[in-house]
């Protein structure tokens, strides 16, 4: 559209200056529209800041190399649930990359994207996975090795509020899975676990700050990538990562928000952006930023070797997010009972 007007302008310019000026005005008027089509807002969850900073840089280079004008990729980060609500309430996000499929389901329920969104991209639309590990103070002074050690006398556990944090729900489910496997009553176990929590932060990043900066607590239940990131930023001699015997396979999914796509150019960009996450190049970045990717072919072997193998259970083990959300975290659910039964 823009080029056509420009060409017309050039033809007309030979006819007269005035006509050229008019065409110039038209071209100018059309310009902002084209620029707008090249912006993309990615609404993501809390601990992906560093990942998407790197991904966005690589994607812009990739997109420009394919002969497209440089797009402007914007990112918004916050608690997964709060981010989903912002999109439902009208935040103009073209793609969402959240912590839980349940949160994207909520957006789909409002008709902003098709209900079968998770089948549109490989691996259940999850370009990377992560798990929950323990971050402890250097030397592990309290001798924490597995979930059972968290409820010992004198151990303080930092984990955010599962009501407001997607990561915290995974923490909770991982503890649940351990209790199930070890013949304990899972509900009693998570109850005693939360009795060891002195601060219930709103999001995963807040909890990391409480543990690392404020030096509260003996163990942080953290996203694996957060644990490695904290170690990288604050020095390997400050914290140790403890891998429990069992944890969860978190599959943070991504999707295009159809209702917020304004034209074909933007759709192309949004699709390309999400597909880019599955390329060998992006997968290498994913491994570098401490997420577990799928394709190791271009990744630095050291980044891949970092992740220990452990027993992982996925959300299907618990009956899917819809069931878990209703039974565990809804108003009056199992989690509420922990704090209402005195």
């Amino acid at each position: 559209m823009l080029t056509k007007i420009k060409q017309a302008g050039q033809t007309l310019a030979q006819g007269g200056l005035l006509a050229a000026a008019v065409a110039g005005v038209f071209a100018f008027g059309a310009a902002p529209q084209t620029v707008q089509a090249q912006t993309l807002l990615n609404v993501s969850y809390d601990p992906t800041r560093e990942l998407y900073e790197d991904i966005d840089k690589a994607f812009v280079d990739f997109w420009v190399a394919q002969g497209n004008p440089a797009p402007e990729i914007q990112a918004s980060h916050g608690g997964s649930g709060a981010q989903a609500r912002a999109v439902i309430e009208g935040l103009d996000a073209q793609v969402v990359t959240l912590a839980l499929a349940a949160d994207i389901d909520k957006i789909a329920k409002e008709g902003k994207l098709p209900a079968d969104w998770q089948s549109k991209l490989p691996h259940n639309a999850s370009p990377y996975t992560s798990t929950i590990v323990f971050l402890v103070r250097h030397g592990n002074p309290k001798g924490i090795k597995d979930w059972g050690d968290l409820v010992k006398d004198g151990v303080e556990v930092i984990t955010p509020n599962p009501k407001t944090s997607g990561g915290a729900r995974w923490n909770y489910l991982a503890a649940w899975a351990w209790a199930e496997k070890n013949g304990q009553d899972p509900q009693a176990f998570v109850k005693s676990l939360y009795e060891h929590v002195p601060v219930l932060d709103k999001g995963a990043r807040d909890a990391t700050t409480t543990f690392t900066q404020r030096e509260i607590g003996d163990v942080l239940l953290a996203w694996e990538n957060e644990a490695y990131l904290a170690q990288k930023e604050l020095g390997a001699d400050a914290f140790d990562i403890i891998v429990p015997s069992i944890s969860v396979l978190a599959e943070p999914p991504v999707a295009v928000v159809e209702a917020n796509i304004h034209d074909d150019a933007q759709r192309k960009l949004a699709d390309a952006y999400l597909n880019f996450l599955y390329t060998t190049e992006a997968q290498a970045i994913i491994f570098k930023d401490f997420y577990r990717g799928w394709d190791t072919s271009k990744a630095d072997p050291a980044d891949v070797a970092r992740f220990p193998k452990l027993e992982l259970v996925d959300i299907a083990h618990f009956g899917g997010w819809a069931k878990v959300q209703k039974e565990q975290f809804a108003d009056g659910g199992v989690f509420d009972q922990i704090y209402t039964a005195k």
Binding site: G79, G81, A82, R85, K106, N161, K163, T164, K202, F329, A330, D331
Partner: peptide, 12 residues
């Protein structure tokens, strides 16, 4: 109140 909102429980 914020927690209720994040549960999508506006009336609550």
């Amino acid at each position: 109140i914020v927690i209720k909102l994040e549960e999508y429980n506006e009336p609550g």
